[in-house]
Measured scan of single mutants.
Amino acid sequence: CHSECLGNCSQPDDPTKCVACRNFYLDGRCVETCPPPYYHFQDWRCVNFSFCQDLHHKCKNSRRQGCHQYVIHNNKCIPECPSGYTMNSSNLLCTPCLGPCPKVCHLLEGEKTIDSVTSAQELRGCTVINGSLIINIRGGNNLAAELEANLGLIEEISGYLKIRRSYALVSLSFFRKLRLIRGETLEIGNYSFYALDNQNLRQLWDWSKHNLTITQGKLFFHYNPKLCLSEIHKMEEVSGTKGRQERNDIALKTNGDQASCENELLKFSYIRTSFDKILLRWEPYWPPDFRDLLGFMLFYKEAPYQNVTEFDGQDACGSNSWTVVDIDPPLRSNDPKSQNHPGWLMRGLKPWTQYAIFVKTLVTFSDERRTYGAKSDIIYVQTDATNPSVPLDPISVSNSSSQIILKWKPPSDPNGNITHYLVFWERQAEDSELFELDYCLKGLKLPSRTWSPPFESEDSQKHNQSEYEDSAGECCSCPKTDSQILKELEESSFRKTFEDYLHNVVFVPRKT
């Protein structure tokens, strides 16, 4: 048989008469490798580009789960590009990614509803959504962080984005990388972005840091009482949809009607710091009717980097990364020049730590249904340095008659930039024990000054392991946590139920 035959053949030295091919099969003959313009397919066939392209389009058009959109890589027609490569849609070739590779997620039936953290986790790592997304989240724990972890990498949506009755959302900033909504599939009414009845939605994105392009379709905003109209108009300008909307697409009466839409800028007039305090004062603000001013709200939190936005980490279910302080308005003076500047002394802060701070007014709604208010920009203030805590785990070892090696770990709280350490030492008198000992005694162990690591005695271990207080009263049991108490109650309830079950099964009433 021919060298490319495997198993047997019907005619000697003829690659077209093989029972099976050793390498690849091409047009009725066995070959060692697939010549151009053919590609290896499933490690035994040679196919042309049209064959591989037909497989790709067949799966793409069917949208069946589990099928493969075949691509070409290293002269092979394979189910998908290997790690580190992405497909070129024009020629199906796998090309190296520039940075992290995109991950295209194809949605069944063309859309997916995100109504819980669990459903959001199914899209973790996706960068391109081939379909439409509907966000409908009523509640949950730590929602802002969970949504950002699972949806934060999405850069492109081919269909539309719909935010509907998501009472738990305060902001859409968890879509931190969303840059493009194509609108290839539109919501009824030709809408590519749809926001309806979101009672706590206050911000779409921080438009000073976020760009969003909507290729096709219109915007729809109705019944978002805490979303200011200025935020919607800003989205029109940034996304390129200005002029597409009709009169009733953006409701003037049901958007922002319960919001404090600040239209003035508060400026800080005085800032002073110490290692654990920050004193702030800002310019006074009074609405047209000074009785509408209820006070100020001061927001602050630790910020290692200057990239904080107002609604980071917030949701309507209680999660809030900001510390909020309510401040009463100052006494009002008739003389504008003698107006008191409101302020606040922030206490209990960490030394040498940068804080993000902003302040906003708290006002009631005027009778004319106009909203007044003022808010400052987010500023960054760093507390002063102070003395560091003591170095940890000092170790001293003498390696000769004239040297001592000293080692330690950095302090747990540096409280500033540590530039150097101060080492103090003092000579001590020799131990009298060394002169009084009889060095001729056998088995004498000389006193040693070398360091030995501390260890816990058996008594201390027994005390720590004991669940009861000892007789001397030195140790006591740790208080039980809520989960331990709940577990004990469940076990007790189970024992009672099981005992009742045994009584009912074992003891049967005697027939009379």
Rank of each mutant, 00 (worst) to 15 (best):
I134V: 14
V170R: 03
G313S: 04
T213V: 13
N142T: 07
C317V: 05
S192P: 03
K375T: 03
L345M: 06
F220Y: 08
K177H: 08
F221C: 12
E264S: 11
I134K: 02
K242C: 12
D384N: 13
Y160D: 01
N334F: 09
C228R: 03
D249G: 08
W322T: 01
F296A: 11
L133I: 02
F193M: 15
G131D: 00
T371H: 12
K226M: 10
Y194T: 12
A316N: 13
Y160S: 10
K234E: 08
T113W: 13
A195R: 00
S396L: 11
I137L: 07
G217F: 00
L331T: 12
L201I: 05
N141M: 10
D289H: 10
S171A: 14
A259Q: 14
Y380S: 02
H222R: 13
A303W: 04
T113G: 11
A251P: 07
G243R: 12
V397A: 12
R182H: 07
T241I: 09
G313K: 14
T113N: 06
N320W: 14
P394Y: 08
Y160A: 03
G348P: 09
F220A: 12
F311E: 14
H341Q: 12
S321H: 10
L298E: 00
S116R: 14
W207M: 06
Y191M: 06
L108Y: 14
A195M: 09
L406S: 15
A195C: 14
L227C: 05
L178M: 14
K301N: 15
G373H: 08
K218S: 05
F311Q: 12
M297T: 14
V170I: 14
R179M: 07
L266S: 01
S338M: 09
V325L: 14
R182I: 12
N307K: 10
T364D: 15
V128C: 05
I163M: 09
P411S: 15
P330V: 09
S260T: 11
V117L: 09
A120Q: 08
L294S: 11
K277R: 11
K162L: 15
S158C: 10
L293K: 04
K209W: 05
G139C: 01
G131A: 04
S333Q: 12
I157D: 00
Y194V: 14
I232L: 07
G240R: 14
A385E: 04
I154M: 15
L107P: 09
K267A: 08
I163A: 02
G348F: 13
T323N: 10
N340E: 05
E156I: 11
L169C: 15
H341T: 09
R179K: 13
R332M: 03
D289A: 12
L172Y: 02
G243Q: 14
W344L: 07
V325R: 11
I378E: 01
P388H: 01
L107E: 14
R138C: 06
D115T: 12
L294W: 15
S119G: 02
G295I: 06
A149N: 13
D384H: 14
N198I: 01
T353N: 03
D276V: 01
L161A: 04
T361P: 02
L392T: 07
K337F: 11
A149E: 08
E109F: 02
P336R: 11
K301V: 03
S401M: 09
G243V: 01
G256Y: 06
Q382W: 09
F193Q: 00
N200D: 06
R347E: 13
G189I: 01
D206I: 04
A259M: 09
Q382C: 02
L392S: 12
R281P: 00
G240L: 15
D335T: 13
T386A: 15
Q245H: 05
S158I: 11
C317E: 03
T127V: 03
R138K: 07
F268K: 00
L349Q: 01
S119C: 09
P304I: 06
A144G: 04
E302T: 03
N255P: 03
Y372A: 02
N334G: 15
E262A: 14
Q121I: 10
L147C: 02
N248F: 12
I278P: 00
I188Q: 08
L151Q: 00
K407H: 08
L349K: 01
Q382P: 04
S173D: 11
R369I: 11
F268M: 04
Y380E: 01
D312C: 00
R291G: 09
D249A: 05
N399M: 10
A120T: 12
E237P: 02
L123D: 00
I250K: 15
N263E: 12
L298G: 14
L186R: 07
Q199H: 12
R165H: 13
V397H: 13
G256H: 04
I327C: 14
K360F: 10
K337G: 10
T273Y: 06
F268H: 01
L345F: 13
N141Q: 10
T309P: 04
V390M: 10
G217C: 07
K162M: 12
I250L: 07
L169I: 02
K267M: 12
P329T: 14
R291W: 14
Y300P: 00
W205C: 04
I157V: 03
R138D: 04
L151K: 00
F358K: 14
Y194P: 01
I163Q: 01
L107F: 04
T309F: 11
L266N: 01
L362Y: 14
V381E: 06
S239R: 10
W322V: 05
K242S: 06
L169S: 06
R247D: 06
S166A: 09
N190Y: 04
A145I: 14
D115Q: 04
N224T: 03
F174M: 06
S119P: 06
L331R: 05
N334P: 14
G110K: 11
D206G: 06
H233V: 12
I379F: 06
S132D: 10
T371D: 04
L293C: 11
I214N: 03
K234A: 08
L172S: 03
L108N: 14
Q203M: 09
Q258D: 14
R347L: 09
V170L: 09
F220Q: 14
G217Q: 03
R369D: 05
V359L: 06
L133P: 01
D328M: 14
G313P: 07
I135M: 12
D393M: 14
L345G: 12
G313H: 07
I114G: 00
S119I: 10
L153E: 15
S398Q: 13
V308A: 15
S208H: 08
K409H: 04
F290M: 06
I232P: 07
Q354T: 13
T118S: 07
D393Q: 15
N399Y: 04
G240N: 08
E184I: 08
E237M: 13
Y223Q: 05
H341G: 08
Q314K: 15
T127K: 02
K337P: 14
P284A: 04
S333W: 15
A251R: 05
E310F: 03
F311C: 02
S192F: 00
S208R: 07
L349A: 13
R164F: 14
T273A: 15
L280C: 11
G140L: 13
I214E: 00
S274K: 12
S173R: 08
Y305V: 12
I188Y: 10
G131Y: 01
V128R: 11
Y194W: 05
I157P: 00
F311T: 14
F221I: 14
C228S: 01
G295K: 14
Y372Q: 02
H106Y: 10
R244D: 05
A259R: 12
I357R: 00
G343S: 10
